[in-house]
């Protein structure tokens, strides 16, 4: 039995290493293609030299101005997402738990969420002026709906017998909410948080193109205006890596909180 367990563990390690190897290989192949294509095209304004871009990329992590602007953007994402989590959770729980509230609010929520996020930019500038306000508002608007909808779906997916079981063991409405509804909806809610932060991260960059004079998106526009294409590429790479890191962090939280869903306690994604 013990030997069997060791074999399983060994195979799993081999598999994970294999997966990582393929992932790294794909990245290496893409980099080689980039380097060759840049040489062949010979126009750094369109596709900058690979090595120069990588050099700028590493330098950017040490550049205080870039890091300060990255922090500004991160702060906006966290603030906007926090507001979205508060509103989305309350809205999602209410709409998921009460069919009456769902019926009442569904047309409004489902109409507003169809408005493209960039269409909110002019209005957000009118409401909040330039700077922090419109960016946080746009993050909020892009994050709140995935959160609300996932929370509703999470509650709808809870087996009614869980609630019946709790009631037959003496649980009141508050206890059912605390012990059944919230943990039952948590996996979908956390998926909603992942989608929300992803949407927030994407929309903040767009918002910073237009509505502010600081932040990561602003640095990108600045690089574009100064024709520093390699810097623009380096910043785009950074934004991809930061976005990926945030996503992994939420996945880690998901693993910590909802490992009970999987036989081996591992949340995949």
């Amino acid at each position: 039995m013990a030997g069997n367990g060791r074999n399983i563990r060994k195979n799993r390690t081999v598999k994970i290493t294999g997966d990582n190897f393929i992932g790294i290989l794909v990245i290496v192949v893409l980099c080689v293609c980039w380097a060759l294509a840049a040489r062949a095209i010979g126009k750094p304004l369109i596709l900058p030299d690979f090595l120069e871009t990588i050099k700028t990329f590493f330098e950017s992590w040490l550049n205080t101005r870039v890091m300060r602007n990255l922090w500004i953007t991160m702060r906006r994402v966290l603030t906007g997402t926090l507001y979205a989590v508060i509103v989305g959770t309350i809205l999602g729980l209410a709409m998921g738990y009460s069919p009456k509230i769902l019926k009442a609010l569904s047309p409004v929520v489902n109409s507003i969420r169809q408005v493209p996020i960039m269409a909110w930019v002019p209005l957000s500038i009118v409401w909040f002026g330039l700077g922090e306000g419109p960016t946080v508002f746009l993050i909020f608007m892009s994050a709140v709906f995935p959160l609300t909808i996932n929370t509703i779906a999470g509650i709808a997916g809870i087996d009614e017998n869980y609630i019946n079981a709790a009631r037959s063991m003496g649980a009141n409405t508050f206890a059912i909410f605390r012990d059944v509804i919230i943990p039952g909806a948590l996996p979908d809610f956390l998926t909603g948080v992942r989608l929300a932060v992803g949407a927030g991260w994407m929309s903040v960059i767009c918002a910073e193109f237009i509505a502010t004079s600081a932040g990561f998106g602003y640095l990108m526009i600045e690089a574009q205006e100064r024709l520093q294409t390699s810097r623009l590429y380096a910043l785009m790479l950074m934004s991809a890596i930061v976005g990926f890191a945030i996503d992994r962090l939420i996945l880690l939280l998901d693993r910590k909180l909802t490992g009970w869903r999987f036989r081996d306690g591992v949340v995949r994604g």
């Binding site: 869980y162 019946n164 012990d179 009970w260 869903r261």
Partner: peptide, 19 residues
């Protein structure tokens, strides 16, 4: 209504998977 005087075992057991 439901109460502790009636213990119920559901067809799918309905164990709380998070506990």
């Amino acid at each position: 209504g439901p109460s502790v005087s009636k213990g119920y075992v559901f067809q799918n057991y309905a164990l709380f998977p998070w506990m």
